[in-house]
Amino acid sequence: MSGPDLLVLHALRCVGTAGLTRLAATTGLTEPNVESELIDLAVAGLTTRDADFGVWSLTGAGRAADVKRITDELESAAARPAVTAAYDGFLVLNPELLDLCTAWQLRPADGVVIANDHRDPSYDARVLDRFADFHRRAAVVCAELSAALSRFGRYHVRLTEALDRTRAGKLEELADSTSSYHAIWAELHEDLLATLGIPR
């Protein structure tokens, strides 16, 4: 079980520079708890705050510390084979997710690709229906990951919430906002690369 300090440290490694709201969503901790962890990590020289933008990022030492701790966590849980297998499953799903996000933004009309203005409920329903089908298959990969390392459990929760928000009418929560399904999926991609030590 990763401690809150590692969750915050690793979240910064996966999302890059970020503010408290984003880090709270990623880690599942409250904003005050995130901030408290960030301050402790800053005292240890692992994080730094950009006062102009009010955002946090890792220092070089923080990145090195996360590399070591995440690798140690993976190896001590003997989770590398399971995470590697789940990553293979992720790579099969990834192009389809990007197709679906693209279909949410752009749509075919008379053989031309046009911006989806979301005025055709039947088209949007069709994309959402395929998204729901995709999500069921993504859930399998997420379950494999959280069985291997419990910190991965947040992704399924967050992805489900983003899909629910979209269904409730927040159309930007599928492909467009920083809390969208697409953004969370991209974080998961980054997390898998970081966890397995695969360079981009």
Binding site: V15, G16, T17, L98, T102, H182, A186, H189
Partner: peptide, 28 residues
């Protein structure tokens, strides 16, 4: 990747070496 989001937000345009019309960069 997610690390580029601030840069994407600050930029006026985006150019990538890899990827197609359905890539992370294109969606963002």
């Amino acid at each position: 990747s997610p690390h580029d989001m601030r840069g994407l937000a600050a930029a006026t345009g985006i150019l990538t070496a890899r990827g197609g019309p359905a890539s992370h960069a294109a969606v963002v």
